[in-house]
Computed example of a mutant assay.
Amino acid sequence: MEVKSTLVTIACIVQARTGSTRLPGKVLKPLAGRPMLSHLIERLKEAVTLDTIVIGTTYLPQDDPIVDLAEQHGVAWYRGPQEDVLARYAGAAEMVGAGVVVRITSDCPLIDPVTVDNVVRYFLAHDYDYVAAWVGSGFHRGLDTEVCTREALMKAHRLAEDAPSREHVTLYLHRHPEIFRLASYPAPPELRHPDWRLCVDEEDDFRLIEEIYNRLYRPGSPIDFRDVVHLLENEPRLLQINAHVRQKVV
């Protein structure tokens, strides 16, 4: 199948705010001596398919430190509504002239740049509007990577009216397969651990991530996610730290 033009701007937009209800301020919470969001940005910079990274935050003054952090790391930022995250993504995509949008959430401090690149390349090699690596395709929570065309994002922005679709950026796409060409990127066997939870929603999620960083992180050298897999396969008791945490239902 014909590969999409690689001349389009591939923009990774990361939604981030300090007003999380379950763990307020989590994106700036210190992890191995740096804000958690700093580690996420560091890891995304390792992805070779991304032309630009944009931190999409809110207009609220409490999120000024997120803008400051983005500037410290030399990445773009965009400010939009707190609850209407879809509008935030649309505005950020327009600001940087994105042709392809990669959606990452800021609660994934172990995001795998190799997986990000693989999902982007899979998307570019097929004629889809949207491709996702997620629990439904065998990945664990924390590696979630979504890729869509700017056209699909903007169509969702124009048509979505209900609050859940405005808050959960790609929900409208999922609900309308008659409009959008959707696909999942299957997890390779070595990453097929859908029962693992490596995102941060609650304090015990952070405790697990902190334990992993304390074991594996070296300043200036992002953790190789294969080392995370090796650690957790050899010490599965670590996964009990947050085994009780349940994902928020849309």
Results as ranks from 00 to 15, higher is better:
His176Gly: 01
Ala152Ser: 07
Asp205Phe: 04
Val96Ile: 07
Arg121Thr: 13
Glu94Lys: 14
Arg79Gln: 12
Glu167Pro: 02
His157Gln: 12
His126Pro: 04
Ala93Trp: 01
Val85Ser: 10
Tyr185Thr: 06
Arg158Asn: 05
Asp127Ala: 11
Pro81Tyr: 10
Pro189Asn: 09
Pro81Gln: 09
Ala98Met: 09
Trp77Ala: 00
Phe139Asn: 10
Glu203Gln: 13
Phe139Glu: 07
Leu110Thr: 08
Arg158Gln: 13
Ser137Glu: 09
Gly142Met: 03
Val116Lys: 00
Met95Trp: 05
Asp162Ala: 15
Thr115Gly: 01
Glu178His: 11
Ala87Gln: 12
Glu178Pro: 00
Ile111Asn: 01
Pro113Leu: 11
Pro109Thr: 04
Asp84Ala: 07
Pro81Ile: 05
His176Ser: 02
Arg158Leu: 10
Phe206Ile: 08
Ala132Ile: 09
Pro164Thr: 03
Tyr185Phe: 15
Gly142Pro: 02
Lys155Trp: 11
Asn118Ile: 03
Asp204Arg: 15
Leu171Phe: 14
Met154Tyr: 09
Leu182Glu: 05
Ala133Gln: 04
Ser137Val: 06
Ala76Phe: 03
Glu203Cys: 07
Asp129Trp: 06
Arg197Lys: 14
Arg141Ile: 10
Gly97Met: 11
Ala160Tyr: 10
Val101Ser: 02
Val75Arg: 02
Tyr89Ala: 11
His174Phe: 10
Leu171Cys: 08
Tyr78Gly: 01
Cys148Lys: 06
Thr145Trp: 03
Ala156Tyr: 03
Asp107Asn: 12
Asp112Asn: 10
His157Ala: 13
Ser137His: 10
Phe123Met: 04
Val169Cys: 05
Thr149Lys: 00
Gln82His: 15
Arg121Ala: 13
Ala133Tyr: 02
Thr105Trp: 04
Arg175His: 09
Tyr130Lys: 08
Ala187Glu: 08
Arg103Trp: 03
Arg207Glu: 13
Glu211Pro: 00
Asp205Met: 03
Ala92Met: 15
Pro164Lys: 03
Trp77Ser: 02
Ala92His: 07
Gly136Asp: 08
Val85Ala: 12
Glu151Asn: 07
Leu171Asn: 08
Thr115Ala: 10
Arg121His: 12
Thr149Cys: 01
Gly99Ser: 01
Ala132Cys: 11
Arg103Gly: 10
Val102Cys: 06
Val100Asp: 01
Arg197His: 13
Val101Phe: 01
Cys199Pro: 00
Trp134Asn: 15
Pro81Arg: 09
Arg197Asp: 11
Asn118Lys: 14
Arg166Ser: 02
Ala163Arg: 14
Tyr78Ala: 08
Pro81Ser: 14
Glu161Ile: 12
Gly91Lys: 08
Glu190Val: 12
Thr105Ser: 14
Asp205Glu: 04
Pro113Met: 09
Pro113Thr: 09
Leu191Met: 13
Ala90Leu: 07
Phe206Gln: 06
Asp107Ile: 09
Ala156Val: 07
Asp205Gly: 05
Ala156Gln: 04
Leu153Pro: 01
His126Met: 06
Ala160Pro: 05
Ala92Asn: 08
Leu191Lys: 13
His157Ile: 00
Glu178Gln: 11
Thr170Pro: 00
Tyr122Gln: 02
Leu159Ala: 12
Asp144Ser: 13
Arg181Leu: 02
Ala152Cys: 02
Leu198Val: 07
Lys155Phe: 10
Asn118Tyr: 03
Arg150Phe: 12
Thr170Tyr: 10
Leu182Lys: 07
Glu203Lys: 12
Arg166Trp: 05
Leu182Trp: 02
Gln82Phe: 14
Lys155Gln: 15
Trp196Thr: 06
Gly142Trp: 01
Val120Asp: 02
Cys199Leu: 13
Val200Ile: 08
Arg88Ser: 15
